[in-house]
């Protein structure tokens, strides 16, 4: 039995013993950073956590990935930015954020008052230099556990083609960011490519410490009444439970291609999904769109994990990472 004293010390928040005496270890490690559990709200669906902290103590989470931050403030795309789909949604927010300097001066200091763990810094850019400069500035902040570099943005110097669709461009961003921080660098990949494994491999070879996948799938909806696209920008990123099998398949493929850890995401909305993602090869799992429709979902998944582990005879989550690949 875990003693009340050690619980109070916080260290054993991640070891759970059921009524039947089953012992479930939910801890995972990302490049040396131990998390109480693998449940991580995904960037762009959780802001800086404040809205969710109004509802529950978000310190129960493994950590979270903060709103994608760029060097300069961005308003983002025109509205409507949201379209509903069967078992999912399309968003075209366009990386609205106040810019790295305000994130450092305002958002991160505020975050300290309601979140006491390290956080994942999600970073975007429109040139290699922008990525590196944003990471360099954020690197001074002790609250950051690792960087998650979103390479789905268009490269303004490369004809607007997303960095993440070319192994060379993805590697170039990886190498540039790698040089300006000692913290782990995870590259968040777009699924809108023909061979995601080759891009993951290029990032690993360029010095990435891990891979995050998948970002949203490019999609669209058309309004039958107006006969025009629902989203002002016409197309946007499709996410939600509908994309889970695609995300799972890509995590599985990338796990075979690289040795570095993977954060798996895409349509995850239950403790079972978390476990399935880990079996495919994820060392930790992010939850995105589900936060918007059920703001308690991450808390509920954290709470459900030990019981679900017991149900499937899993004593330690870290031991099942990639288990689906075993012969």
């Amino acid at each position: 039995m875990v003693s009340e004293v050690s619980r109070a010390a916080g260290r054993d928040a991640a070891t759970h013993q059921s009524d039947t005496g089953f012992h479930a270890d939910t801890t995972v490690t990302l490049s040396g950073w131990e998390l109480d559990n693998p449940v991580i709200p995904a960037s762009g669906t959780f802001g800086f956590g404040k809205e969710f902290a109004e509802l529950y103590d978000i310190n129960c989470l493994g950590t979270f990935s903060f709103k994608g931050t760029t060097l300069h403030p961005r308003f983002g795309n025109p509205t409507p930015r949201i379209a509903e789909c069967t078992a999912g949604m399309i968003n075209s927010v366009g990386l609205q954020n106040p810019g790295v300097d305000e994130v450092l001066a305002v958002q991160l200091p505020k975050l300290q008052s309601y979140f006491h763990k390290k956080v994942i810094a999600n970073v975007s850019g429109f040139s290699v230099e922008e990525y590196a400069e944003t990471v360099r500035r954020l690197d001074e902040c002790d609250q950051i556990g690792l960087f998650e570099v979103n390479v789905s943005c268009p490269n303004v110097h490369g004809g607007g083609i997303s960095f993440g669709t070319s192994p060379e461009a993805a590697a170039e961003v990886t190498a540039a960011v790698r040089k300006v921080t000692r913290r782990p660098v995870y590259i968040k990949l777009t699924p809108n490519v023909t061979d995601i494994a080759s891009i993951a491999k290029a990032c690993e070879d360029a010095g990435a410490d891990g891979i995050s996948l998948i970002n949203t799938l490019l999609g669209m909806r058309i309004d039958l009444k107006t006969k025009r696209p629902v989203i002002a920008n016409k197309m946007g990123g499709f996410s939600g439970p509908a994309v889970f099998p695609v995300a799972l398949r890509m995590v599985y493929q990338v796990y075979e291609a690289v040795k570095i850890p993977i954060m798996g995401m895409g349509g995850v909305s239950s403790a079972e999904d978390v476990i399935e993602m880990m079996l495919a090869g994820a060392a930790a799992v992010q939850i995105g769109a589900a936060n918007l429709t059920d703001p308690y979902i991450c808390r509920d998944i954290v709470a459900a994990l030990p019981k679900t582990m017991e149900q499937y005879g899993i004593t330690s989550l870290r031991e099942i990472i990639g288990a689906a690949h075993r012969n």
Partner: peptide
């Protein structure tokens, strides 16, 4: 009125520009 994602300020789906910023 605007199309919303979450409805509670997390997703930036319904942002608009104002005199005093977004």
């Amino acid at each position: 009125e605007e199309r919303m994602g979450c409805g509670f300020g997390a997703c930036m789906g319904c942002s608009c520009k104002t005199i005093t910023g977004y």
